[in-house]
Design a protein around this nucleic acid. Structure first.
Length: 893
RNA sequence: GGGCGGUUAGCUCAGUGGUAGAGCGCCUCGCUUACACCGAGGAUGUCGGGAGUUCGACCCUCUCACCGCCCA
């Protein structure tokens, strides 16, 4: 006997263990005839190995699991490839912080080997957290194939990709301005920089012009948001067409505080509309200025050290000062010299590191780059051709936009945690890129004609460099494994829009380059999970909802169902706990439906054929089940998760529980043995399909009920997770549908009127049907018990006309009368009928107008015109019956 | 500045060229032998403003307003 309430925590871990133990998550499924099943593969977006599950993961993995479970039930050979990434900067930072908190020597003090060892330890400690949490969510990944970006195999893939790209000229080393994080002391890529709008100032400085002679201006005014960079200025630029300054071009300026002289140059970068039209040029500390410097062959003066403090290239007074302290000091010093023209408040975009939140400095260093432009070509082409499709499609625009304007990808990081770059340097700085040190030595020997002392590049690669290989490295590449042949290209990638550039684009580029095929056919992009007010969840706002707390409180199924039901394409999810609670209630509802079946002897019958059912409600529910399963199937196929979830919800609660169960009750307790047996079997058959349809969304409760209800028939053939998906056909019966629709209308109408007339719910009242044809009479007769029970009738009889003083319900094909003379409020009832008449009249007027418009009848499609004619006829008939009813009522008064 | 998205019931959101929907909330009633994590009934919308296309627009086009996000 099932308990009254479903208690998720009692069963979730046990059920999960059963699935895992039975190997149901493993790929490699065969068809019944032993041939390999059609493959369906997904690679998980690898979470940070030391991270923990947040709502974004919960959504992302729920959607993947829905697809995976759906396809598994459809008999496909499903591989959901799980794993984690090493999250270079994030993980290294965590460990460094730990060292600091425990007052241990920092990483430099302990040395590279010891530090990396320590990070591995941390990975061992916390690395299982997130995978454990994914299991609590119900994720049916093939854990036997779990991978980590720094695994031996994946590392080999990284090395090979680096070496190959280098030898193909697609990876190179260059000295350019990079985004330098002065806190983490590493370069980062453009994508890891966020511009943050900040209130600042615009400082206008007067730079004295040297030997102005007869010229009007003795100073040239330049504006800057970063006064401290003036120490690195190497020119002042004006626009070549700016007449105000033409005569000054070629003159020198005395750069204050430095004793240096710099030229006034003409360059189109200077905007005549801005300020004085002159702009200071600091080629070593600004991307645009760097370009100007390159055009004019200006010297680059680097004024910062790696921490963002002033270095030896600035006057002694400022050396060693932090950049922001230097700013204050420089402004003060210039003011003292009366060289500050004005200071204005100014809104500017400040670049910040997404990990460190510190202000990023464009800084001149040697770094490794990938020639992304070349790799992007085929990746753009593949989406243009439709070999990879984005869902929703509009994300393709975002993808194209970025890909077509792609810049070189900075892949080196000044970190220790990650894949160390396979490059070695000879004594003269010659670079040898090789698979390993031995090969590098051999290359060096060939180059120098003798063995040479080599030094390995200390830097590691961007984590996304290894995640960019994820779709094939996890399948065994560079080895030619059977899995690679079978599961690549993968079927679909499910991910958030925030990593289209970071990850999707890179997998496209690298997948096409090394596998010559797209990494996935479909990219399903889902939205962000926000709080109920639409705010992004963040620790600092304190509005973070922890998926594990929700699972504890409401069960994994409820959380999953909520996320799926809210995952409408192209829209963010505003999550609130009471929505989850609502779907927890849904789980309880399902549980109780099972309980009802159990109490009424509804057991699955092995060879039951639903199309053989005789009872109208059974013929009807079979058709409803077919429609529901078609709707759910189609929606999942199109990745319309909310539609799928809602179709299932609607069917289960409002069709099956609200009506079928109620309609079945009289039969289940009735006299006819055959009808009862058929209904018991049909209930069980339908409920089994319900469990299957819901399984992708609510795997735990459905599996539990599948097993529990299976006990009554000596156990199930298989677990639900691998049971067949309902694919139903030929079960629709229009006559049954019409009849049950009539019953439902009958009951609803009577209930509605009873409620409106304040008939006590417990009171059973007689009902008179009049104006009914033989077919309607027969119909009412057939469902006499049901109608009486659900509408709470004491008697039901047929008469030529409704009795006087009765409440009358006008249906399409009959008038139902409740003789309530003693309790009826005549005025209220008259009022009710008048309102009804008004409503119908309004409808008639609208339809009349439409149908008398020749343009409408001539141009609208026939079926629409026909439909409107029918509606008019029905409305007119209803109006007549209502009028009759009103007359009768008035006669009774 | 460029791009994308949004504006539909109190709230959160579906939706389609042909009679405006769901969940939650709200109101009334009810312990009817699956379920009060429930049942029955009910109220609530100028579908952001304006113009156009169309026999017909919540839906298509244009425009305006406001709100988000991404990229410069």
């Amino acid at each position: 006997m099932l308990e009254k309430h479903y208690s998720p925590s009692d069963i979730e871990s046990r059920i999960y263990q059963q699935w895992d133990d039975a190997g149901t998550f493993r790929g490699g499924r065969k068809n019944a005839d032993g041939t390999p099943a059609e493959p369906f593969s997904i690679v998980i977006p690898p979470p940070n190995v030391t991270g923990s599950l947040h709502m974004g993961h919960a959504l992302n993995n729920t959607l993947q699991d829905v697809l995976v479970r759906f396809e598994r039930m459809r008999g496909k050979d499903v591989l959901w490839q799980p794993g984690t990434d090493h999250a270079g900067i994030a993980t290294q930072s965590v460990v460094e912080r730990q060292l600091m908190e425990r007052q241990l020597p920092d990483r430099r003090a302990m040395g590279r080997a010891a530090f990396v060892e320590r990070v591995w330890q941390w990975k061992e400690e916390s690395g299982g957290t997130i995978t454990g949490q994914l299991k609590r969510l119900g994720a049916s990944c093939d854990w036997s194939r779990e991978r980590f970006t720094m695994d031996e195999g994946l590392s080999r893939a990284v090395t090979k990709v680096f070496v190959d790209l280098y030898r193909q000229g697609l990876i190179y080393k260059d000295k350019r301005l990079v985004n330098w994080d002065t806190k983490l002391l590493t370069a980062i890529s453009d994508l890891e920089v966020q511009s943050v709008e900040t209130k600042g100032h615009l400082w206008y400085f007067r730079y004295p012009i040297k030997n102005p002679g007869k010229l009007k201006q003795k100073f040239i005014v330049v504006a800057t948001t970063r006064p401290e960079t003036m120490l690195g200025d190497t020119a002042v630029a004006v626009h070549p067409d700016d007449k105000r300054w033409t005569k000054y071009i070629g003159k020198m300026v005395e750069l204050p505080l430095t004793g240096r002289e710099i030229p006034i140059i003409a360059d189109e970068y200077a905007d005549p509309e801005q300020g004085s039209g002159a702009v200071k040029i600091t080629p070593a500390h600004d991307e645009n200025d760097f370009e100007v410097g390159r055009r004019h062959d200006l010297p680059l003066i680097n004024i910062f050290d790696q921490h963002g403090a002033m270095n030896e290239n600035v006057p002694e007074a400022y050396r060693g000062m932090d950049r922001f302290d230097a700013r204050v000091r420089i402004v003060a010093d210039l003011e003292a010299l009366d060289l500050v023209e004005k200071i204005e408040p100014h809104l500017l975009k400040v670049p910040k590191g997404d990990r460190s939140d510190s202000i990023i400095e464009p800084w001149l260093t040697d770094q490794w780059y990938v020639d992304a432009k070349t790799l992007a070509g085929p990746a753009i082409q593949a989406v243009e051709d439709g070999r990879t499709v984005f869902v929703p499609k509009n994300w393709e625009k975002t993808y194209f936009e970025w890909m077509r304007n792609i810049k070189p990808w900075t892949i080196s990081r000044q970190l220790w945690w990650g894949h160390q770059i396979p490059a070695w340097y000879g004594p003269d700085g010659e670079i040898f890129v090789a698979f390993n040190e031995a090969e590098a030595q051999a290359l060096a020997e060939a180059h120098y004609g003798k063995p040479a002392e080599l030094r390995r590049d200390e830097d590691v690669l961007d984590t996304w460099f290894s995640s960019g290989l994820w779709a094939f490295s996890t399948l065994g590449w560079p080895d030619e494994t059977p899995e690679l042949a079978r599961y690549y290209p993968t079927s679909v990638l499910v991910t958030g829009f925030d990593i289209i550039f970071f990850w999707v684009a890179r997998m496209m580029m690298l997948g096409l380059h090394f596998m010559h095929e797209v990494p996935f056919h479909t990219v399903y992009i889902h939205a962000l999970v926000r709080d109920e007010k639409g705010q992004k969840m963040s620790k600092s706002k304190g509005n973070v909802m922890n998926p594990l707390d929700l699972i504890d409180e409401y069960g994994a199924d409820a959380l999953r169902f909520t996320l799926a039901a809210m995952a409408a394409q192209g829209r963010d999810i505003k999550l609130s706990a009471n929505r989850v609670e609502g779907y927890r209630n849904f789980a309880t509802k399902i549980w109780n439906a099972a309980r009802f079946g159990e109490m009424n002897g509804c057991k699955s019958v092995a060879d039951f054929d639903p199309s053989s059912a005789k009872e109208t409600i059974n013929r009807w529910i079979a058709g409803e089940a077919q429609r529901a399963s078609a709707a759910v199937t189609e929606a999942i196929e199109q990745q319309r998760f909310n539609d799928a979830a809602n179709a299932a919800y609607q069917f289960v609660w409002h069709t099956f529980c609200d009506w079928y169960v109620e309609l079945a009750k009289p039969i289940l307790t009735g006299a006819s043995e055959t009808a009862r047996a058929e209904t018991q079997a049909m209930f069980a058959w339908t409920f089994d399909r319900i469990l299957a349809l819901l399984h992708p969304f609510m795997p735990f409760i459905t599996e539990e009920l599948w097993q529990r209800t299976g006990e009554a028939v000596g156990g199930r053939d298989s677990m639900l997770i691998v049971a067949p998906w309902p694919e139903l056909s030929s079960l629709e019966d229009k006559a049954a549908d019409a009849e049950i629709a009539w019953v439902i209308e009958f009951v609803s109408e009577v209930r509605s009127v009873r409620s409106e007339m304040n008939v006590p719910p417990a009171a059973q009242v007689p009902l008179v049907i009049s104006g009914a044809g033989d077919a309607v009479k027969a119909r009412a007769e057939r469902h006499r018990d049901t109608l009486a029970r659900l509408a709470r009738l004491s008697a039901m009889r047929f008469e030529a006309a409704p009795p006087k003083g009765a409440v009358q319900i006008v249906m399409k094909d009959a008038v139902l009368a409740l003789p309530l003379a003693d309790i009826i409020d005549l005025a209220a009832e008259t009022d009710r009928l008048r309102r009804e008449i008004d409503r119908v009249k309004g409808e008639i007027a609208k339809l009349d107008q439409k149908l008398s418009d020749e343009k409408f009848t001539a141009r609208a499609p026939d079926h629409v015109v026909e439909e409107n004619r029918e509606r008019l006829a029905n409305a007119a008939a209803a109006e007549k019956r209502l009028h009759d009813a009103l007359k009768r009522l008035e006669a009774a008064a």
